[in-house]
Deep mutational scan, measured.
Amino acid sequence: MALNTPQITPTKKITVRAIGEELPRGDYQRCPQCDMLFSLPEINSHQSAYCPRCQAKIRDGRDWSLTRLAAMAFTMLLLMPFAWGEPLLHIWLLGIRIDANVMQGIWQMTKQGDAITGSMVFFCVIGAPLILVTSIAYLWFGNRLGMNLRPVLLMLERLKEWVMLDIYLVGIGVASIKVQDYAHIQAGVGLFSFVALVILTTVTLSHLNVEELWERFYPQRPATRRDEKLRVCLGCHFTGYPDQRGRCPRCHIPLRLRRRHSLQKCWAALLASIVLLLPANLLPISIIYLNGGRQEDTILSGIMSLASSNIAVAGIVFIASILVPFTKVIVMFTLLLSIHFKCQQGLRTRILLLRMVTWIGRWSMLDLFVISLTMSLINRDQILAFTMGPAAFYFGAAVILTILAVEWLDSRLLWDAHESGNARFDD
């Protein structure tokens, strides 16, 4: 018995066209964080690309023209004298008006014999932002004059995390709450300039795509075929072959399989920071003279006294001054041990922890910024005066060393310790 099946006739004509040209192939790229070699397709503007294995951002879609970056830099340069030299806060102490600005706080630190601690604050609040705007201006002028731009481009990517104007702005709020127990506070004209400078700096850093600047100024022929001998440069993120001198053909720094002496430098910085954190938390970090009496505060006791007036601000200072430094030390110690013992479990967790400490590390400088600003506000000789204690130097040095330890660690070593050939990683 035959089955009668109805015929289905399409209502619209289906047209099949042959592909007349070869589909576009992607360029081969190595991930600078996990060293995976993959094919990167062509990316349009405002599109980002991520590593298929570790999800690290390979290409950032946010990109401004150099002219727009230069305009932002010149605007920031105009704001800087007002943000640093004009009063941020006014207080009335014992019937006398006192003005506080950024430069005055750094000068008070240096004047009291601790120039190293003052230079830490100076670099993060004044030096690094000033280098940022002058570097962008150098790129703008240098591109037109045919100057060598490689050193500036190499420095810009590392400079971003040292620009800490946003953290200093939080420190202004913390210092205001600490001082309000002794005097009446009012915002100064410099505060508005400083807030504007923070906003412009944040926007500029978020749109400063150094890798795209490398592509514009020093374009290189990408690798179009897969080759395990391809290496990625950690300076400019170019994937290719080393030249005859073993250097990256684009930025001219040595092109090595792994960062040289990464573990040794990381261990040295980490152990030194552990040693410095002990006096930083045991010795007094601030000293207040009130009517001839002397009151010393460690980091913890200062947080407890701050909690009596504002528990939320005390929580912020606790996280930045105690929780973050010790968390960074514990995480980095764990990561280094996992590399030495070739741990194969929990790779995803370790990668996330490394990215976390990379982002939060700079916030530990908050305590030094609060001390710097408070020193310029309260300084009335023996009637009422505020000065920093010996722990300030140890704390600042420990924070900087932990930042350097994270920067010096080559994250690809975590993958080397893991089993080879993993296309995915999980716990």
Rank of each mutant, 00 (worst) to 15 (best):
M1N: 00
N4T: 07
N4W: 04
P6N: 09
I8S: 04
P10Q: 07
I14D: 10
V16F: 07
R17H: 06
L23H: 08
L23S: 07
P24W: 09
D27H: 10
D35C: 03
D35K: 01
L37H: 06
L37R: 06
F38R: 04
S39F: 11
S39H: 10
L40F: 05
N44T: 09
N44L: 06
P52L: 06
P52F: 06
C54V: 00
C54H: 00
A56R: 09
K57Y: 05
K57Q: 09
K57N: 04
I58W: 07
R59Q: 05
S65C: 05
T67R: 10
A70M: 13
M72P: 03
F74I: 09
M76E: 03
M76N: 03
M76H: 05
L77C: 12
L79V: 04
M80H: 15
P81F: 04
A83V: 04
W84I: 08
P87K: 10
L88P: 01
L88H: 03
L94K: 00
I96C: 05
D99W: 09
N101C: 03
V102Q: 07
M103D: 02
W107P: 08
Q112M: 13
D114A: 10
A115L: 02
I116R: 07
T117Y: 02
T117C: 10
G118R: 03
G118W: 01
G118N: 03
V121H: 08
V121Y: 04
F122G: 02
F123K: 01
F123Q: 01
F123P: 00
I126N: 11
I126S: 11
L130H: 10
I131T: 14
L132P: 03
V133M: 12
A137F: 15
Y138V: 09
L139P: 02
F141P: 06
F141L: 13
N143S: 15
R144G: 08
M147D: 01
L153Y: 04
L154Y: 02
M155V: 04
L156Q: 14
R158L: 15
K160V: 10
K160T: 06
E161M: 12
V163D: 03
V163C: 10
M164N: 04
M164V: 02
L169Y: 02
L169D: 01
L169G: 06
G173F: 10
V174W: 01
A175C: 10
I177S: 05
Y182N: 07
H184N: 06
I185G: 02
V189Y: 05
V189D: 07
S193Y: 02
A196M: 13
L197P: 02
I199Y: 09
T201H: 08
L205R: 13
H207V: 11
N209Y: 09
E211A: 14
E215Y: 14
E215R: 15
R216I: 10
R216G: 12
F217W: 09
Q220K: 14
A223L: 13
R226L: 14
D227H: 15
E228P: 12
E228N: 14
K229I: 10
R231L: 10
L234C: 13
C236L: 00
C236N: 00
G240T: 12
P249V: 14
C251S: 09
H252C: 06
I253Y: 08
L255P: 04
L255H: 08
S262I: 03
K265G: 02
K265H: 09
K265Y: 03
C266L: 07
W267S: 15
A268N: 06
L271V: 14
L271G: 11
S273Q: 05
I274V: 08
V275G: 08
V275N: 10
V275S: 12
L276R: 00
L277K: 10
A280I: 05
L282T: 13
S286N: 00
L290T: 03
N291I: 15
L300V: 09
S301Q: 09
G302V: 06
G302N: 00
I303L: 15
I303P: 01
M304I: 08
S308W: 12
S309Y: 11
A312S: 15
A314R: 03
I316F: 07
V317G: 01
F326V: 09
K328V: 00
F333E: 08
F333Y: 10
L337C: 13
H340Q: 07
F341Q: 10
K342G: 10
Q345C: 12
Q345W: 15
Q345G: 14
L347A: 14
I351N: 11
L352R: 09
L353C: 14
M356E: 08
M356V: 13
W359P: 01
M365P: 00
M365T: 03
S372Q: 05
L373S: 04
M375S: 14
S376M: 12
L377C: 02
I378Y: 01
Q382S: 09
L384G: 02
F386T: 00
G389K: 01
P390G: 07
F393H: 04
A397T: 05
I400G: 06
I403S: 03
I403N: 03
L404P: 01
A405T: 08
A405M: 01
L409I: 09
L409H: 07
R412L: 00
D416L: 05
S420V: 12
G421F: 05
A423E: 15
R424M: 07
F425P: 12
